[in-house]
Amino acid sequence: MSGAPELPLWAALLVSFLVLAGAVITLIGAVGLLRLPDFYSRTHAPSLGATLGVGCILVGSMITFSVLQSRFLVHELLIATFVTITTPVTLMLLARAALYRDRVERTGSAPETDPEPTELR
């Protein structure tokens, strides 16, 4: 409870809002992980936290440290870049592995062959 840094009021309000918004968005994503009915739907849920959730909290952290040390601190950009690049890789690999397993085991939760391409009208 104690030991939170003493920021100017505007910064404190802005950081509070960003951190709370990020936490709520991440929680909605995690709830989606529980509520959505099948695996492929569930893969959409964590990307909520990995995009806007991470973004909000990182911007909040950037504002805090820039104001505290009164210089421009943007090392959080590293985490942002890193998460943006790695999330597609993990989700794509996981989805392909699940598709492969579902097709081999014929569980019926994935189509046996790709559906016909939808054309642009």
């Binding site: 994503g29 959409h44 990307s47 999330t87 597609p88 989700l91 794509m92 989805a95 392909r96 790709d114």
Partner: peptide, 11 residues
């Protein structure tokens, strides 16, 4: 596609 939740690139 991944940054905008709701679409997932599979293959």
């Amino acid at each position: 596609m991944t940054c905008t939740p709701g679409t997932l690139w599979v293959h």
